[in-house]
Design a protein around this nucleic acid. Structure first.
Lengths: 132, 132
DNA sequence: TAGTATGTACTACAACTGTAGTAGATGGCC
DNA sequence: GGCCATCTACTACAGTTGTAGTACATACTA
């Protein structure tokens, strides 16, 4: 593609950890490293670790921050949905040659779904059709 | 299940590149670095690069190899489906808190599917129900 | 058998990630 | 004002990945 269209949602690819941090951040709606660490305390990471992760994420442009008092408050600059989308797409392209139907079929064939659930989805489609 | 089996699908997580190599390998059904490189020539990687990737993959237990003449023929020891599964699951757990229905719903909401397609899936479910 | 071609093994190196310690800055309390 | 708590920034280090060059082994060919 061309070079440097910064408007393009360039595909954001985050590691599991990174994504969790982003998620926590979104949940908290702006938070310091410590707060995120507390939110994610089940991961058992040092708060400095979270701090590192966040500052790296900021360097990547996924987060922004501003100092507030003695804290640095981070905030996610990229829509979590967009990240999800880009990660799902990347996965689809890697694992299913870009064919999202294949993923669907795969999920179905994995037996994760029954007909009722599909019907629900169907409703979703019906109602979502003009919803964009 | 007893513990003698060690066949346990421990979650295999591969990078995009790695997965492509595995895929190519499966397609070729056992191949040397050079052959894989040719198969993946669209990636524009040096054959030595592919070699490196494959030997690392072997170290990880994903591939096995034997020398045959002057070539080392690699072969995938892990079912590609299993890899796919484990990667999809990992993605689901990261992005959708382990809820595969959420992924489904997500795919649907992304507007990737229309009703006909869902109907096809429905058929798939119906017929796949006792198919395992 | 000597030379050429070909294929791998080893080495290298940069970037990224996971993880965390330490030092320094800053704010609060007595 | 000084001390303590707290928070970040910086540094560090190991492991993984992406990438490939170089050297060495081996096979084929004339």
């Amino acid at each position: 593609m061309a070079h440097g269209v910064s408007r393009v949602k360039k595909s954001v690819k985050l590691s599991d950890q990174q994504f969790q941090v982003v998620q926590a951040l979104n949940k908290l709606g702006g938070a310091s490293a410590r707060e995120v660490q507390q939110e994610l305390n089940h991961l058992g990471l040092a708060h400095t670790t979270i701090g590192t992760v966040m500052s790296r994420l900021e360097k990547k442009g996924v987060l922004s921050s501003k100092v507030q008092g003695r804290e640095r408050i981070y905030r996610c600059t990229v829509d979590e949905g967009a990240i999800r989308q880009s990660m799902v797409n990347s996965m689809i392209s890697t694992l299913f040659k870009g064919d999202s139907k294949a993923l669907m079929a795969y999920l179905v064939s994995e037996g994760e779904f029954d007909i009722d659930e599909l019907d629900e989805l169907k409703k979703l489609v019906q109602h979502g059709e003009d919803n964009d």
